[in-house]
Design a protein around this nucleic acid. Structure first.
Lengths: 118, 118
DNA sequence: ACAGGACATCGACCTCTGTCAATATAGATC
DNA sequence: GATCTATATTGACAGAGGTCGATGTCCTGT
């Protein structure tokens, strides 16, 4: 399924439509990026990212994050897991506490994709 | 609900945690932006955006977009509606055909938010 | 060893979302 | 006006996702 649009065959210009001038996003690229966007497409996770990014040494401990929301501790833990598994947050455990840190490159990669007009 | 973290009171540095150095994303901002990200957080919609953006005069007609996917016409129509209603695509009908155009500002706004580290 | 605190995992619930077939609408052509 | 074509809307369904309470795990004091 879905292979014909990848080869970008010389477009036969049908009555209604203009030709393509740049290679569209491949199916593979789209499917690789969408999960990253899904990860940040949630108000709670956006605020979590922002909170972590805004901490003094670039990292925040979970206890701090829990307190910033009217949500249960498991829920925050779930959102942090989503952000971590998508590669947007680094995780490090020190003693009893767990610290999360924003992976800037992941964010800037997304930013340049969008800013580049896709 | 959720007002205490908005005032950014001088942080009493508890044992585990570092203080905040920048204002985190407000609840309102997060809830305004998340729907935009949700709109592009789908592989089909990412490719739709990219296809529209890649057309010669900056716009593409629906007939062209339908052909690029192994999905039913109503499904593509649905995705285009989502992108349009979130403000990412402009819609204009000319005769029998409907043309969509990317609203660049919407994309660059998102890009600068992410690139700015939130 | 035990107790307590920090964080994660599990299971359940409900809502949201992507998809399709069927149908509707609206413009063009005969 | 009848018909054809392009696009949108509707209704139904399955699967994904956000939330919670209950429970588990791991560390640290005592």
């Amino acid at each position: 399924m879905s292979k014909s649009q990848l080869t970008l065959t010389p477009v036969e210009t049908v009555a209604c439509c203009s030709p393509l001038v740049s290679e569209p996003l491949s199916v593979e690229t789209a499917e690789r990026i969408a999960p990253l966007l899904k990860a940040i497409a949630d108000p709670v996770r956006l605020r979590l990212l922002s909170l972590v990014a805004g901490h003094a040494d670039g990292e925040a401990c979970v206890c701090d994050l829990n307190d910033a929301f009217d949500l249960s501790q498991p829920t925050i833990s779930h959102h942090l897991k989503v952000l971590h598994e998508s590669g947007l947050l680094d995780r490090s455990k020190r003693g009893v506490w767990v610290y999360y840190r924003v992976r800037r490159e992941a964010l800037t990669d997304l930013a340049s994709l969008l800013g580049g007009g896709l």
